[in-house]
Each structure stands twice: as C-alpha cells, then as structure tokens.
Write a protein that binds this DNA or RNA. Structure first.
Length: 711
DNA sequence: TTGTCCCGCCACCTA
DNA sequence: TAGGTGGCGGGACAA
C-alpha cells in the first residue's frame, strides 16, 4: 500500500469511526459544514492580515539575533485543524480536500493556501505559528522526535461526552487515557509523542516562555482592540462556537452572530482570535501542553510589556525584596528564579548596586545585601571624594581595565551628579566619563550603559528624568536622599518576595531618617556630633571590646556568666530584630565597624557565631549563614561543631551544662540540652548495640558542616 | 527620526 | 572544562 492509499485508508477508517454514532455523525457533519464556511472567511482574513507589515501593538519577541531562527517555515495546513478548531482526526489530505473539493465554499487557490506559511507571517497569530514551527523543528533535532502530520484521533465517544469540544479533551485524564490509547491504536494513526523529553526540556522551557510572551501579547492586543468587531464579522454562531471553541474564549471575544453577514474588511480590522483559540490553534496545544499547563497559561492574564521587563522595574522588584533586610546573602539562582528573569539582567542590576555598596560579591553565585542604609554612606563617601577618582576612572579605562566596567561607570555617573552637575544628559555624562577623542561608537556604547545605570538609579529614586531647558534634550536630574526616602516609603509596604519576618517599620523609618540627618549634618558641618549616636557607638565599642578580649570560646561563654557584662545581656536578650549574618568571614569584623545601634544585640550574637566559626574556619572557609527560622538550630550546630571538632574547646560539656542552666533560668529555649544529651551518650561507656548506634548517629551528625542560607 | 534599552552572543574568568 | 560573569552592540520599540 503506498502512502496515498494508506492516508486514504486512514481517512476512511476515521470516517467509519466517526460514523459509529449517528448522533455524533450528524453533529460532526454539521460542524464540518459550518467550519468549511468559516474557514473560507478566516483564510481570507488571514491572507489579508498577512499583507500587513506588522501589528503595532505587538511587543513580543520578533527577532532572533543573527537570524538563527529565520527560515523556518510551516505548512499551515498541518495546524489548520487546530487554528480553525477542526476535528482533530482530519488528515492533511482530508483537510486539503475538504477545502479544495468544495469550490462553492472555497475560492482559495493552492498557492494562496501554501503562501500561508510562517516566512511572512508577521502578526502575532502567525508569528506564533512560526514559533511553533521553529519549536517543532528544533525539538525534532534535539530529541530525534517526529511529530506526526496526522494528529491523533480523539475518541469520538469521549468527544461527544465533552459536548464536542476538543479543547475539553483531557489526555491526562487517567480514567479515560487507556480507552483513548486503545482507540488510537485501533485507528493506527501515529500517536503524538510527548514533546517534553529529557533532551529538550531546556528548549521546552524557553518555548514556554516565548509562548507566554506571545499569549500575553495577544491579551494586550485584545484589550487594545476591545471594540473591534472582527470576530463578529467572521460570524460564528453560538452553537458552533460552543462546540468548537471553548466557552471562555467566546466570552472573551464577545462573539455573537449579529453581524455575521457583514462584509469583512480586514484592512481596517485585524483578526482578533481569542487567546485560547489562537493558542490552541497555533501551538497545537494538545500535543505541546498538558491541560494543567494550558490552564496555567490561561490564568496568566498579565500582559507582556516592555516596561515590565525594563531594568527599572526589575530593579525595583529586586530592591523591594531586600529593602527591609539588614544584611543577608543573595543567591543569584534563587533571585533569578524568583524574579523570573534572565540571569544576565540580574548581573546588570547587581553590578550597579555594587557601585552603591548595596551589594557585595561574596563568591560564586553569591552576593551579600548590605542593607539599604548603606547607600547613605556611599553617597556620603563619594560626595566627599575629589575628582581625582574620576580621572582614575578614565585612566583605568585607558588601561583597558575591563572588569566591572558597569560598576566603575556607575560610580563615575554618581560622582558626576555629586561633584559636577545636578542635571546631566547621558551624552554629556558619557563624554565626561570617556577619554578625550573617544570614538563616537564608544560613546554610543557608553550611553547605552548609562541608560542601564540611570534606570537602576531611577528605581532607587536617586535621579529623575527631565528635559534640558536649552536644547529640550532628555537628561537626568539628581534627587538624592529625598528620592531615596520616597522610594523607601513607597516600597516598604510592598511585601518583599522573600519576606520572612516582621520588621519594626517605625524603627526602620527612624533609622533612615536618622541616617539622612547624619549625612546632612556631616555635609553641613563635619563638627556636629549626634550625642545619642556617640553613646550608641560607645556601647558598640564596649561590646566589641568585651568580645575581642575573649581568648577563646570557653572564655566567651564564661564571660556570659558574669554579671554586668554586655555580652551576657545581649546573648540572653530576647531574640528580636535579628541581624542574622553569622561568621561570614571570621577574620573581618566589618559588622562591628558598622555602627548601627539597632543591630547591636545581633552583632554581639553574631560575634559569638563568628568566634565559633573562626575556630571552625581552620578547616573550612564556608560561610555559616543562619536562617532566622533555623537560627537556634544553627547556633546549636555551630556550638556542636565547635565542641566536637575543635580541640581548643575543653570543658565543653561543663560549659554546655552551665549554659543549659542559664538558659533555663532565663526561660529561653535551651539550645544546648541536645548537645549535653549527646555528649552524655558519647561518654557513656556502656557499649550496647543501641548505644553504639546512637553514638554513630551522633558522630555522623557532628561531622556535618552546617550551612544555612535563605537567599 | 531620535531616543530608549531589551536581548542574547560570546569572550573571559573561575572553580 | 563547564558554568559563571559581564562587555558589548544589534535592532526592536517608543515617542
């Protein structure tokens, strides 16, 4: 049997299958007849639509650099059943014949039909088709997977039960899947293989993202053209619509039959198929997405917006997450995931924030948020620096110091505002920050980067966009601390995505006000001293001294037992307003140098952690970060590690016991009791099997290095 | 037409 | 050597 005969046989088989139920057959024929009529109208619209250059409101991806995705074409007939919501079981030839063999309802020529390929489809629906076609082709390459030209037949009985709506055909339905498979086997049309395979998962993710974008673009387009009546003109009647399109899409598009006899003018009206219908049609969703994903996507009503993806917005989101945090670690992976953004964009933001000292790189994939207040210090620092640094900036560039140029450029930009002019055009800034006689191309590139920086600065409220009086050219004006304050006030109510604890807003706000006052005072008069601040500093220093005088961990805890010791007060103090960075770098005490009285308690505790970690750091440079939720556990583990792994710590059991008593007296959670218990077990000479097992378990546990992170 | 800036390629770095 | 990092510029989008 040659392929034509086989296809014919397949078609006949399908026909036979369809006719197994007379009711179904009648409905089916009815649908087919209506579809043929509508198809003609849609194709006509599509053809006209394709003559349009592009959809102006479309903001989705329309290009790929260096045209790597170009050149893929798709025979729209292969997907026309979905586009038109034809019954799934029509073969390619059937579709053609259903179109071409009925000249009374179809005036399209073959070449017209074939011209409906992705190569010149620029408007969203066809871009989507092209997108789909690209995906299929690439997917095939990746996984050596073939997509059958013949879409699998839907079980007619189930389809009938589903009110003839193919969109309701859920292949994941366990109850029916066996029946469906059986039906397909019997009708021997190649079942579609799952698109999602191990090999193409990455591509699938990308495809999903693109599909989302396109879908969102449709939404946008739809909302912008609410009053258009394209679909009215297409003239689906309710009955057909209900049976072929899903109800939701009908509602979305306000399909009615009032104007079904009107002349279609596609030059004035754009095709506005419902997102659901388009998505179904263009991506052949039943083969690409499972119903769960489909639902998810349908629920996503957010519109694709260039602005939403802008660095400014992204930066705002980023900052909102960390705004209210004191200090914490940032995992690039997690933040990328959380913000649902390309990693590359996070680098841009972080590099710029690094210039403001809001963020510091701590290692691979690991950054540290230094607290929002840090920016005040940074501004203060750069505002008192001479312009020599600016010269150095240029010199550095001349020396081809390429690393972190965005950071360097950002500092330069900041300093221009602080020391040169309050209002700057980007070109002016670019020239100022470039060596003399720089090529225009270099300047142009620098301007691009300054746009990036300006957007992040804008997100912080540091600058705002203005127009130069003389030239009417766009420029940026320095706002500074006022802008920062406004940004903080407007953002503080927004819950950070990674929010994990309540914060004392009043206190926080006061801190910022205080910091602002400090800067103003310093700026106005360096001799002014805030007495309260001085007092805080003294307490801080005392604590630091107390701690630093401790020779080892034993002494440290010994000192806790003595009254009138700030360490004793602090460690025993209630856990609140935690600054939970611990032992990041035991050799540095920069946390101490940050004179923030509100972090005072935490600092002392952090110091304890640091001290413990310092002893551990002989063997590991790993940071021991403490999740506030697990803070007690972490402290326990740190102590446990110290006790069990560090020879310096003698009498650890004794100290643990004392601490246990101390904590119990104070009504605090006893974080050491477990240690004491474990030590008792280890010291137990009775080596029963049970004891041996417990010992092994404890020893195994003690060998672990604990590291907690929340970002 | 000009201004804006997203996007992702790709070279270099680092573990 | 793979994955992380960041320079860079094309070209789409917006005004």
């Amino acid at each position: 049997m040659d392929s034509a005969e086989q296809l014919s046989q397949e078609a006949n088989d399908n026909e036979n299958c369809q006719s197994s139920s007379s009711n179904l057959n009648a409905t089916h024929n009815d649908i087919l007849g209506k579809i043929k009529t509508k198809r003609k109208q849609i194709f006509k619209l599509m053809k006209r639509q394709n003559t349009k250059k592009k959809c102006s409101s479309y903001s989705g991806p329309t290009h790929n650099r260096k045209g790597q995705n170009e050149g893929h074409q798709i025979d729209i007939r292969q997907h026309s059943n979905s586009i038109l919501n034809l019954p799934q079981n029509l073969s390619l030839e059937q579709k053609d014949s259903s179109i071409n063999n009925n000249p009374s309802q179809n005036n399209l020529e073959d070449d017209e039909l074939f011209s409906l390929n992705g190569s010149f489809c620029q408007s969203p629906p066809f871009q989507h088709i092209k997108d789909f076609a690209d995906n299929i082709q690439i997917t095939e390459k990746l996984s050596d997977m073939k997509i059958s030209s013949h879409t699998p037949p839907l079980n007619p009985q189930r389809l009938y039960n589903l009110n003839m709506n193919p969109l309701n055909f859920n292949e994941d339905d366990d109850q029916n899947s066996n029946e469906d498979s059986k039906y397909r086997e019997e009708n021997y049309i190649l079942p579609q293989k799952k698109i999602k395979t191990q090999n193409n998962r990455n591509y699938e993710q990308k495809r999903q993202a693109q599909t989302n974008n396109l879908r969102n673009a449709y939404k946008l387009k739809q909302s912008e053209s609410e009053n258009q009546e394209d679909l009215h003109n297409i003239g689906f009647d309710q009955e057909l619509s209900h049976s072929v399109f899903d109800t939701e899409s009908i509602q979305n598009n306000n399909i009615d039959n009032k104007t079904q006899n009107q002349e279609i003018d596609a030059d004035d009206n754009e095709i506005n198929l419902s997102p659901a219908a388009n998505a179904e049609g263009c991506s052949n969703a039943q083969s690409i997405m499972n119903s769960h994903e489909k639902k998810q996507m349908q629920q996503q009503s957010q519109q694709y917006s260039r602005r939403e993806k802008s660095l400014e917005e992204l930066s705002k989101k980023f900052l909102t997450i960390f705004l209210q945090k004191e200090q914490m670690l940032i995992s690039l992976d997690k933040i990328t995931q959380q913000l649902d953004v390309e990693r590359r964009r996070i680098y841009d933001i972080i590099n710029i924030l690094e210039s403001l000292k809001l963020v510091t790189r701590r290692g691979k994939n690991n950054y540290k948020w230094n607290g929002f207040e840090q920016i005040f210090d940074t501004i203060q620092f750069f505002s008192t620096q001479s312009d020599k640094q600016e010269v150095n900036l240029v010199a550095a560039e001349q020396n081809e110091k390429k690393e972190k140029s965005l950071e360097i450029l950002s500092i330069g930009f900041l300093k221009l505002f602080l020391n040169f002019k309050q209002t700057l055009s980007l070109e002016e800034a670019a020239r100022k920050l470039s060596p003399n006689n720089s090529e225009n191309q270099k300047i142009k590139t620098k301007i691009r980067r300054l746009y990036d920086i300006a957007n992040v600065f804008k997100s912080l409220g540091l600058i705002k966009k203005v127009q130069l009086n003389e030239t009417k050219k766009p420029a940026f004006q320095w706002i500074g601390i006022t802008g920062l304050q406004d940004f903080y006030n407007s953002s503080k109510d927004k819950e950070g995505l990674g929010s994990y604890q309540e914060l004392d807003e009043t206190n926080k706000s006061q801190k910022i006000n205080k910091k602002e006052q400090q800067i103003q005072q310093r700026t106005l008069s360096n001799s002014l001293v805030n007495l309260q601040n001085q007092n805080d500093q003294n307490i801080q220093d005392t604590t630091k001294t107390d701690f630093m005088n401790c020779k080892d961990f034993n002494q440290f805890f010994q000192s806790i037992e003595n009254n009138n010791n700030s360490l004793q007060q602090n460690l025993i103090a209630p856990f609140q307003q935690e600054k939970v960075i611990a032992a990041e770098d035991p050799d540095k005490d920069d946390d101490f140098s940050a004179s923030k009285n509100t972090c005072f308690f935490s600092n002392s505790k952090n110091s304890a952690f640091k001290r413990v970690s310092k002893s551990l750091s002989q063997t590991t440079q790993q940071n021991a970060q403490i999740n506030p939720n697990n803070r007690l556990i972490c402290l326990e583990n740190l102590v446990r590690n110290s006790i069990f792994q560090n020879n310096q710590l003698t009498n650890s059991l004794n100290i643990s016991q004392k601490l246990t008593q101390l904590f119990e007296q104070k009504g605090r959670p006893n974080i050491f009791s477990n240690i004491v218990n474990d030590q008792n077990i280890l010291n137990n000479q009775n080596n029963t099997t049970e004891n041996q097992q417990r010992k092994q378990s404890i020893q195994s546990e003690n060998k672990k290095e604990y590291s907690y992170s929340w970002y």
